[in-house]
């Protein structure tokens, strides 16, 4: 009975071919490592910035101050108008007295504050947004509501985070594009070399009636092994680099407000992404390399 898929044979031939062309295999693995390491580094920067933005979003609110001439009832009546503005997630009314109490909190020793009249501050709304990137647009819209005297939104900080995240993502995408191309080129050349070395055997196989897939599989396995090995190596290096960065951030006073996601949280997803990317580069490189040789 003929076997349809001789996995053992494909693996044996694939591994043999890797060692047969050691230098090219080494170069291919190095390129995959470089590609994935850069991809991983920029992605982790983007993920951490996203996480910080998420925190900012969760806490984020801006204040809308009500016109001083409005009574509390009139001020409360503005809530429904603010709630209908797009990107407004939650609206909380704060009376003048509550605002002053909040202001005094932690400043109990300040005699100057205790002597202030209860209506020194204005009624206000604490407004939470859904998307921090639209903070400016939302606060501008709130400002147009009749009765809202002013708004206080720290959108410069939010915009800063968004900009850094977008730049990191953009650089990562460009570098990934270039490195994926170079990795594919090197993998394809490694496989072509292996194919060229085995051209006599392949001619004999074809003459005996081997199918294209039978001929193709050992080369695909070779690409898969190179890709997977490169991915695992890149993952371990990424782990090391990330740990060093985390350590440096923790020890740095200037960066004490920066929160970094622990690597242990990222391991499953990152490992999966690295392995998939490595395998994909390996398989696509192999298929591209041998496609035209199998046409006869």
């Amino acid at each position: 009975m003929a076997r349809r898929f001789d996995f053992g044979y494909y693996c044996k031939e694939g591994v043999h071919s890797i060692f047969m062309h050691g230098f090219m295999s080494f170069a291919a693995v190095c390129m995959i490592v470089a590609c994935l390491l850069i991809m991983g580094s920029f992605s982790l920067v983007a993920v951490n910035l996203d996480n910080m933005l998420g925190d900012l979003e969760a806490e984020n609110e801006f204040l809308a101050y009500v016109d001083e001439s409005y009574s509390e009832e009139e001020a409360r009546a503005l809530q429904s108008k603010i709630e209908v503005i797009p990107n407004v997630a939650e609206v909380l009314f704060v009376t003048r007295a509550e605002a002053l109490d909040d202001f005094r909190l932690g400043r109990e020793d300040n005699e100057l504050l205790s002597s202030l009249p209860d209506d020194v501050l204005r009624d206000r709304y604490r407004i939470h947004v859904d998307d921090i990137e639209l903070l400016k647009e939302t606060s501008d819209a709130v400002k147009t509501v009749t009765g809202v005297a002013d708004v206080n939104a720290a959108y410069d900080i939010a915009q800063g985070f968004v900009m850094v995240r977008n730049i990191a993502t953009g650089i990562a995408l460009v570098l990934i594009g270039i490195l994926v191309f170079v990795s594919l080129f090197i993998i394809a050349n490694t496989i072509k070399l292996a194919f060229f070395y085995r051209r006599e055997e392949i001619a004999i196989m074809k003459m005996c009636g081997a199918t294209n897939s039978f001929i193709r599989w050992p080369f695909i396995v070779q690409g898969m092994i190179l890709g997977l090995f490169g991915a695992l190596l890149a993952f371990l290096m990424q782990w090391g680099v990330y740990s060093l960065v985390v350590k440096a951030v923790i020890q740095s006073n200037g960066l004490s407000l920066v929160t970094i996601i622990p690597f242990s949280v990222l391991i499953p997803k990152l490992l999966l992404i690295f392995c998939c990317a490595g395998l994909l580069i390996g398989v696509v490189g192999s298929v591209l390399a041998i496609r035209k040789f199998l046409q006869v």
Binding site: A2, D6, Y9, E200, E201, I204, M205, C208, F214
Partner: peptide, 23 residues
Amino acid sequence: FRLIEKKTVHENLSFAMRAIGAS
């Protein structure tokens, strides 16, 4: 002849059979 020099006689034959998926 077109035999594979690095394979024995037996291996040359098994190579041809493996190419068509023989057990």
